[in-house]
Design a protein around this nucleic acid. Structure first.
Lengths: 356, 356
DNA sequence: CTGTTAGCGCTTTCAT
DNA sequence: ATGAAAGCGCTAACAG
């Protein structure tokens, strides 16, 4: 429609100067009632949106943001989240932000506690958290609440915390999707083995619990009669896994279908391959490079992705817009659950090549 | 690492002024050999990337871009492509571009011919084409080639044309995906009915041919023994469809599985619903509102999306970066093929809420 | 309280 | 051929 409206246009319409309009737009105070009203009236009529990039170059202040997540390993889940975050910073290159990253060992509660305690003492304008341990995270959040520092969760959220927002998959739905997919490609009587991660020092991660529940509820609601075997799966003590797997495939006459609730499905796929166990249907989580490889080899049938880059990107974008413009934020942000098969995996990219 | 590098930094390092650096960066000429070499040497050492947003505000020139596609209807495929294109313009709000849109009736070759002839006479800096009819499109392209006007395809491409780039799904792979999905959820002996669009005045659209081939090849390669019934499907003469459907479901003892190669799967789904034909497995294309509704109702089992918004967005983004910066472009751009089911459709958003 | 001015990084114009 | 300067829309600092 009508041309793009600028601050100077508003100023003229309201009969004031640019400076005053800027003060009103950003609530900087020092504006007379009458001027404010005049400007607000104009603002209602025109559709003004401040241009974040131009704003960025003139903005003097810089922001310090801390990011804490489980350790990042190459081609794995958390790396994608970090990538998304960096991506957002590139996109908003004109905004001055200093990012500080602290990772912890997600299988060791003490590492997490220690890291979080350190973080809690630092100066910062905002915090982005990839939570794992419930109590530790809650503790950190409380301290942030006290200091009035905004924080956003990625990957999952914690019920009793009060984040500015969270970006996460709906893990319950994720579980039902896995149930639907696996049951649609196997015979009604096939057993299903579900692998879930166990950690030291904490009950099962929240994500796992939710997925498991979603899975079970789906089967019940759809009157699926498959026998479900729940199998613990340790990343820190892999020798136990061998044992479980051996038992599973040694004792069973019929090879079961397999669902892996964490991102390490590739380990199971590799075990099957090494032991020449064929024709097992598998559904796994997350587009790690190892999982993608197993998918391409035909070892995994469906892989479910949860847009980690998108999560990271939007967490940072949201935070920046909140810090700079006090832009109102949507608290709950459920990301897409992507279904990948051998055929479409090569086209999967999501944010990776996006300039955003 | 090292701080962000600006033109002035390069100028100082090369011992020249900003103006000269700018002239070199954008090949504007009027630069002495010695100055050019000095600057190029610096450029090799530093990592300079011109900031498109800042560049945008200072850039005087404006671009006129024409977009031509099949007619847009609410909630349908082409609307998403247009949305993506507008989205890109918003994102690059600082760049001055005038967009002119011309749509044609994709089921009427004369409408297409007429529209394209009109377009061919206009002044423009670039063109984005959603092609349908082979010869007509090729004609338009030739004229553009002569006038040295760059054009980009969205949705599909045309072999013998010379576009700057195209953004399209790999329709052949799309066909095999449909084959894989349908065969994985039905019994080996179930018949499969494939619906494909017919148009007046042209052989089948290229996309349909490719999908059909991908479908057939998959079945053959995987030794699927399902009987495949190929059924023409007309958007312009719906009464014939009723007849075909009646025959199909009237004569057959076993209800077949259904695959619809165009975006009108909802029509078949509605027919089934009205006639109380239950337990038919269906796989359809494109996330039109009608298809999404049918998916949610459980009438469609899998819906395949081809990121129309992404296609539009990137077509425009690519064009702008090419026009402004002469940025080298990747010609072949295959978009993602998304698999949607009842469970994950609600989280599907793709670009729609992206600021990108 | 408010208008004016300088400056962000970039392009463009205008002298030189 | 080249440097200096003005201007894009915005924020910040400074006089009044």
């Amino acid at each position: 429609m009508n041309k793009k409206i600028r601050i100077i246009d508003i100023a003229k319409m309201a009969g004031v100067s640019k400076g005053t309009v800027d003060r009103v737009l950003h609530n900087r105070g020092n504006v007379s009632e009458s001027a404010r009203l005049a400007i607000e009236k104009v603002l209602e009529q025109v559709n003004y949106k401040t241009n974040i990039h131009i704003s960025g170059i003139s903005l003097k202040r810089s922001y310090k943001i801390i990011l804490t997540t489980p350790e990042v390993s190459l081609g794995a889940y958390w790396e994608s989240i970090h990538n998304g975050i960096r991506h957002a910073l590139e996109e908003y290159e004109n905004v001055k932000v200093e990012l500080q990253v602290f990772t912890y060992n997600q299988y060791d509660i003490y590492s997490c506690r220690q890291t979080f305690e350190k973080i809690a003492g630092f100066e910062m304008d905002a915090l982005i958290i990839g939570p794992t341990f419930h109590e530790e995270t809650l503790n950190l959040c409380k301290k942030m609440d006290d200091r009035n520092i905004p924080y956003i969760f990625v990957d999952s959220t914690i019920e009793s915390a009060a984040p500015l927002a969270f970006f996460s998959a709906d893990h319950y739905v994720c579980g039902s999707m896995m149930a639907k997919l696996i049951t649609s490609i196997i015979q009604p009587q096939t057993n299903i083995a579900i692998f879930h991660a166990v950690r030291t020092g904490d009950r099962s991660a929240n994500t796992t619990i939710l997925r498991k529940k979603g899975f079970a509820d789906y089967l019940e609601k759809n009157r699926c009669t498959n026998l479900v075997l729940s199998i613990p799966f340790s990343v820190t003590e892999p020798e136990n896994n061998e044992m479980y797997l051996f038992r599973l495939f040694g004792s069973q006459r019929d090879t079961p279908a397999i669902v892996v609730l964490n991102s390490r499905g590739n380990l199971i796929a590799d075990y099957l391959e090494e032991n020449h166990i064929e024709d097992v249907k598998m559904i796994c989580m997350d587009l790690t490079s190892a999982n993608i490889e197993a998918l391409k080899k035909g070892r995994i049938d469906f892989l479910i992705g949860q847009e980690p880059e998108y999560q990271g990107f939007y967490a940072m974008k949201t935070m920046l817009e909140y810090l700079i413009f006090k832009k109102p934020v949507t608290k709950q942000n459920y990301v897409q659950l992507d279904i990948l098969i051998k055929e479409n995996i090569d086209f999967y990219k999501r944010l990776s090549n996006m300039m955003y």
